[in-house]
Design a binder for these strands. Structure first.
Length: 835
RNA sequence: GGGCGAGUGGCGGAAUGGCAGACGCAAAGGACUUAAAAUCCUUCGGUUGUAAAACCAUGAGGGUUCAAGUCCCUCCUCGCCCACCA
């Protein structure tokens, strides 16, 4: 028996692929192009089998499409800037660049050991100047279009670590590292104006018909478009004021509060108004209120709470009366103006018209502070009584106590009232988005410097394109101090103004790493270009990406940012397409013992040991066989054994074939085997094409292999002809090649293949060979299976009936019954309906 | 609170509305072996039955249909994402 020496086979072919450059692609040749892209990884610790799934899936897709004759591009690179390397540096004193580059080398070796291949000539590393030069270029382009701007913003601040924290680093309102309560602090920060593209980002989701609906829905919700009305509420001095009066000499027009609502139909039920604690007019509004200090104390208290704390819905809402009133212009009514912690400044206008009867939050607040509750949308089935409400009525209904709009369905009233308001100029229709502008400033060391200069004379000046890259200085002390560590690098900070040549200082913040990853798929096309980020013509030829593969955790941020940057570059005519990824596949996680693999949980499965014990092909096969790849899957070390057994059984077919005599075999049996083979080709092809369901594709090949063995075991009688066996083994090798590439190459060679199995053509099936001549038809009586009968395919219904009625096994079920109906699904099933 | 998924043997999982449990793991029995590993064969959802076979069974309950794991309604459980978004 030929020994299955997987270590030797795998090493041989991995070397061979590298040496012959099987995966190398000429970017000028875009004929039959297929751009297969995996989300590039952050180079952290060693990869475990869970990470492996992503790359293995991608490798299968790439190899399959090569065999389909496509010109496949599969590049790989590194999302190499970021916090973990910097934290490790702070903790252990390892230079982040060193640790990152060494991690990259380790991961490259790991990928190779899996038999996962890329066109490494196109490798990009986002922390290297030849890459981030162009990340900075993108920043400048956005700045040029006023899509990059600076503004004062509230950020999470840890007073103990003395640094800004990302929202993700704040756990239950406290710093994840030292548990100190996080403050809100105003800082000047750089933003990308992604909100300008909110509508387009929503609209174009419709074009992405090969994206999972789940991801599109998540993006839609995140962008959060809502249609509504901005309503003006003039401020008046007190409830007693006969007319809108002035506050300290300002006309009512100037002192006007606008609020946004999606429920304009409830306007007549508005009994008070609430402002966010951050509302800019608060101080002006309470300037002459004797309770001013008390109010401001409350406001400060609310402001000092973290976003995370404020967003907790279960805490009781708190508020304070401003002493002022505003006028609801639809009925001229004066309603009190409050400040409350449940209103968000960043959504809408920071002012909310409160309708306690029809909004649960307002209801709770009104009950607590004894504000009136007035029903204006009545439940048609069950008349509502404001005094008896225990919660807000938020359903559909008919308007009541709403002047001329009484009796209208609330959906219709929304339109009528909005029309009325626009006519009377007291409000106007508007659209709001939840999407916020993208804060890209980071007070961290390990990122791409923002290419801007501050000059006392000229102000904020962009670094000229020809001066890029702005190099990240090395050997900087990056212990967190509250400001970017780059502040301490005086050689870096001190510069001259590009405009006037005078003394100036550099921006010391670095960019969010999501900026780096929002355009890398373009750089792969022209990784070596040093005078431009990419060759426009080549990029236009290769993009959009035909297949993008990655984790669903990137469903919102990375994919949204990439779409945004693509749209900006498209609008600026640097590229000729406005969506980067045509088809998206999001794979599930691999879990072990019910939990995500992590070092701290101690449930990490190291691929190296498994590869040593069973070989990479087995590990690949098991990873793919585990379950449908879009779902989470439970890893079982024992399960790997099964895959190993199968790989060995497949390998052993070489031996079987070698020792088989030149035997004609049994014609029927051989035909049966060929049928099975064609069915398998169809099944495997369809599973890969339609759904990436490699698990069922592999089980189909397992069935084929089992079929071969089961024929052999009937030795002598039903043996398959040698010719037929050869055909089956050759095609099986091709079918398995994307999954288990090393053994497939070896088997291909040993069965006479002269070139790489990946240069062979994917097998095709013969439609006529898919179906049997004699088929087994299930016979049901009243929907219950009572018999199965062999029949020739395509037989007429009359014969079917006769055959069934004549069959001894069917008879007892029909005796004494009256047949009411025959359901005959040709060549598939018969159901006899009896009384 | 909102959105999206998912509930099928001991386990991972299969099933264009048409024979539920493919394929694999585990388990049990057997063959080979001095023995073990490897390999091969057999059994393997539940109940009743010596058997033939019958009945029950895809989270629960209804419905549509000749026929439902699959479609519709109500409910339960779990997972993920978002969340005081006016």
């Amino acid at each position: 028996m030929k020994l299955y020496n997987f270590n030797e086979i795998e090493e041989t072919w991995q070397d061979w692929w590298r040496e012959t450059g099987l995966f190398k692609v000429d970017e000028k040749n875009i004929k039959d192009k297929y751009y297969c892209l995996m989300m590039f990884p952050y180079p952290s610790a060693a990869l475990h089998v869970g990470h492996g799934r992503n790359y293995i899936i991608g490798d299968v897709v790439a190899r399959y499409n090569m065999m389909k004759g496509l010109n496949v591009l599969t590049p790989m690179g590194w999302d190499a800037f970021g916090l973990p390397a910097e934290n490790a540096a702070i903790k252990n004193g390892i230079d982040p660049k060193k640790s990152t580059l060494s991690n990259i080398n380790m991961m490259k070796a790991q990928l190779a050991s899996w038999g996962v291949n890329y066109d490494w000539d196109r490798e990009v590393t986002s922390c290297m100047p030849d890459y981030y030069k162009w990340t900075q270029w993108i920043f400048l382009k956005l700045y040029e279009k006023v899509l990059a701007y600076r503004k004062n913003a509230f950020v999470n601040w840890c007073s103990s670590c003395n640094t800004v924290l990302a929202n993700e680093q704040v756990i239950d309102g406290a710093c994840e590292r030292c548990d100190t309560e996080v403050d809100q602090k105003r800082l000047e920060q750089w933003f990308f104006k992604i909100t300008d593209y909110a509508q387009k980002l929503i609209d174009d989701l419709d074009k992405l018909d090969e994206w999972p609906d789940k991801v599109k829905t998540m993006q839609r919700n995140w962008i959060g478009r809502s249609e509504g009305v901005n309503i003006d509420f003039p401020v008046c001095h007190s409830e007693a004021s006969p007319v809108p009066s002035e506050v300290e000499g300002k006309s009512p027009k100037d002192l006007n509060l606008t609020c946004f609502t999606t429920r304009v139909d409830t306007i007549y039920g508005c009994t008070y108004m609430v402002l966010a604690a951050e509302h800019p007019m608060i101080e002006e509004l309470i300037a002459d209120n004797p309770e001013k200090d008390k109010i401001m104390k409350f406001v400060q208290e609310v402001r000092s709470k973290s976003r995370i704390q404020r967003v907790q819905t279960d805490t009781e809402k708190r508020g304070i009366f401003t002493g002022r009133y505003v006028i609801n212009q639809v009925n001229g009514r004066k309603i009190p103006l409050w400040i409350a912690d449940y209103v968000l400044m960043e959504y809408g206008t920071g002012a909310v018209m409160a309708v306690p009867a029809h909004d649960q939050r307002d209801f709770e607040f009104a009950k607590k502070y004894d504000l009136p509750v007035e029903v204006v949308i009545d439940d048609p089935k069950d008349h509502l009584d404001a005094g008896k409400l225990t919660e807000a009525y938020e359903n559909e209904g008919v308007l009541t106590a709403s002047a001329q709009f009484d009796g209208m369905k609330n959906k219709d009233a929304m339109e009528s009232i909005a029309d009325y308001m626009e006519k009377e100029k007291i409000g106007e229709r508007t659209i709001h988005f939840k999407l916020r502008d993208w804060l890209i400033s980071r007070q961290r060391y390990w990122g791409a410097p923002i290419p801007m200069v501050y000059c006392d004379k000229c102000g904020i000046v962009p670094v000229p394109e020809e001066d890029l890259p702005v190099l990240l200085p090395e050997g900087v002390e990056f212990r967190p101090t509250g400001e970017s560590p780059l502040k301490e690098a005086s050689d870096f900070v001190k510069t001259t103004c590009p405009e006037c040549g005078g003394n100036a200082r550099r921006e010391i913040d670095t960019m969010d790493t999501f900026v780096d990853s929002s355009w890398y798929y373009l750089r792969y096309i022209s990784p070596k270009a040093d005078d431009k980020p990419f060759e426009k013509a080549d990029v236009n030829g290769w993009l959009p990406v035909d297949q993008y593969i990655g984790g669903v955790e990137h469903a919102i941020l990375h994919l949204l940012y990439s779409r945004f940057i693509t749209k900006v570059l498209s609008d600026m005519d640097y590229i000729g397409f406005d969506e980067p990824f045509k088809r998206l596949f999001t794979q599930g996680m691999i879990v072990k013992d019910g939990a995500k693999m992590s070092k701290s949980k101690g449930n990490v499965v190291d691929p190296a040991e498994l590869i040593k014990k069973y070989g990479a092909d087995t590990v690949r096969l098991y990873t793919l066989f585990l379950g449908p790849p879009e779902k989470d899957a439970e890893w079982s070390d024992r399960g790997v054994e099964g895959s190993f057994r199968f790989v060995k059984r497949a390998w052993n077919l070489l031996e079987v074939l070698g020792s088989a005599p030149e035997f004609e075999g049994n014609k029927e049996a051989s035909l049966g085997l060929l049928r099975k083979m064609h069915q398998t080709i169809k099944k495997v092809t369809d599973d890969i094409e339609d759904s990436f369901h490699f698990n069922t594709a592999i089980s189909a090949v397992m069935e084929l292999v089992n079929y071969v063995y089961s024929g052999l075991n009937d030795n002598g009688k039903d043996c398959f002809s040698k010719k037929c066996m050869e055909e089956v083994v050759k095609n099986m090798t091709l079918l398995l090649a994307p999954f288990v590439p090393h053994i497939a190459e070896e088997m291909h060679k040993q069965t006479g293949g002269e070139k790489s199995v990946f240069e062979e053509t994917w097998p095709s099936f013969n439609e006529d060979m898919l179906v049997e001549d004699i088929i087994v038809i299930p016979v049901q009586v009243n929907g219950k299976l009572r018999n199965t009968i062999e029949m020739a395919r395509g037989i007429d219904e009359e014969t079917v009936r006769e055959t069934i009625l004549a069959d001894d096994k069917t008879k007892p079920w029909l005796e004494g019954k009256q047949i009411r109906k025959w359901i005959i699904i040709p060549d598939k099933l018969v159901n006899i309906v009896v009384q």
